[in-house]
């Protein structure tokens, strides 16, 4: 083979596959939270979505805050996040068409086995947070404007504590995804709040366990929104809507409900 032929072969081998990925007709981009991705839910449902509808769903997993901003910049067709008030604002501002409840699970507070704040078994999240502060225990926060972060900040507020003033001392903001934040918490022996799905699937638990769960304020609702094609003309609205319809359908809801890790159900469908 001459040099020229070799180069041509190499360039064909390299460029054709790269180019062909652009040409996939029915593929959509979902801007999603890290929790749904890290929990493995998408690996469970997307092959079935592909089979039922022919749509290839590409998931970009970032914090809820960043997912919403990316969708506002039109870099996604569907938004699947968990911060209801931000979602409603997104729709009200015309960036999204309609918000639908999709599923829920709950948040839990995890911490080291020796439990320095003595909150094991508590069902009162406010008291638990106060105990963490009064016992000078460490708490690691997402600090990334994600759905989980927003929920956590609401809980601090309800407990009458301003953790931001302690940022850097006992309150440590990682500015990272749920998994990275849990790794940090395990490394520091600090408490952290996480959605249950991520926690169950999380592989680096160390001696950590769930200390606080079951408070109604720890409820975690996921919603799904189609990005508004009026605002973003290149949104694949029909494929996106088809995906949303599937998620909200009886079949989609039961498949979400059937996803289990270690025999535990991670998400509870609750579409209307």
């Amino acid at each position: 083979m001459t040099l020229k032929e070799t180069l041509r072969t190499i360039s064909i081998a390299l460029f054709i596959p790269l180019g062909s990925t652009l040409a996939v007709a029915d593929s959509i981009i979902v801007q999603s939270t890290t929790s749904t991705k890290n929990s493995g839910l998408y690996d469970h449902i997307l092959p079935i979505v592909k089979e039922d509808t022919g749509i290839t769903v590409n998931v970009v997993a970032v914090g809820t805050g960043q997912a919403i901003k990316n969708a506002q910049r039109c870099d996604g067709d569907v938004l699947l996040v968990h911060a209801k008030s931000s979602e409603e604002k997104f729709v009200a501002q015309g960036f999204g068409i309609k918000r639908s409840d999709l599923m829920y699970n709950d948040f839990v507070i995890v911490g080291p086995n020796n439990d320095p704040a003595r909150i094991q078994g508590s069902k009162d999240v406010s008291k638990s947070l106060s105990a963490i502060v009064s016992n000078r225990a460490l708490f690691v926060s997402r600090g990334d404007d994600s759905g989980t972060h927003k929920a956590e900040l609401r809980l601090w507020q309800a407990s009458g504590i301003d953790p931001a003033s302690a940022s850097g001392s006992w309150y440590r903001e990682t500015g990272s995804g749920m998994g990275a934040t849990l790794n940090t918490a395990v490394g520091m022996g600090a408490y952290a709040m996480t959605d249950r799905a991520t926690w169950i699937k999380f592989g680096n638990k160390g001696d950590f366990k769930i200390h606080v769960e079951g408070d109604t304020r720890l409820f975690n609702q996921y919603g799904v929104i189609l990005v508004n094609p009026k605002n973003c003309p290149n949104v694949k609205s029909s494929a996106g809507q088809q995906f949303i319809d599937w998620l909200l359908s009886d079949r989609g809801q039961s498949i979400i409900g059937s996803y289990q890790v270690n025999g535990k159900q991670l998400f509870f469908p609750n579409a209307n």
Binding site: N38, G179, A180, K201
Partner: peptide
């Protein structure tokens, strides 16, 4: 790239993802 499975996932982003899932061995 967005670290999209089967589309834009490469070695380094896969490592970042597995780390964030706590799957340190993988």
């Amino acid at each position: 790239g967005g670290n999209i499975d089967h589309l834009t996932r490469v070695m380094t982003t896969a490592i970042a993802l597995e780390t964030s899932k706590g799957e340190l061995a993988i």
